[in-house]
Amino acid sequence: MISRQLQITIALLLIALLAGGVYMYELRRRDERNLLQSADARPVTAPVAGPKVPVTLVVAFDDDGVLMRRQAEVALPDDPSGRAREVLRALLAEYLQHPAPHKVGEGADVDAVYLVEGGLCVVDMNAKFATGHPSGVLLEQFTVATMIETLAVNIPGVRRVKFLVEGKERETLAGHADLTTMYDVDAVHQIVTGLEKH
């Protein structure tokens, strides 16, 4: 027969084990949740089939006030609109790092890209792209110009680009860059050339 004292000790140990298990489980769940939340800041890329291909990103560097071309490997879908979206997401990923060479709104993402006949490309961004964007003429110009140039370099036939935010026209990106206008790719290319450092 097990002594009463031993019975109590075993019961206490079992309770402690159970409590510890529950606590560990909670900790892991919290970690997972945190991980998910921090991942939120980066574009949630839909799983894209297909092998990774090299693309050219035109990236802004705020500290030096210059733009530079960077190669990246991106998995691209077959449809042109999807390719345009993934290329832009690859550029945004550069800007959403910590630290980043240039910043856009935390949680910025491309909702959709529409390639319209006649070379018009409509880029629909999420709200966080604009609401969290740092305010300044050059800072906003960097974002707009590098997105347009990156599109033009990788998606043939894009002549003009129009930005929407959550499907609607927005007056400016963050107080300066005009988003009501239809950007002319050639005109933007001239700005980019002036700011580029090889």
Partner: peptide
């Protein structure tokens, strides 16, 4: 000096 699409210049 550089061009910029800055409201309301245009």
């Amino acid at each position: 000096l550089m061009p910029a699409s800055i409201a309301p210049l245009s």
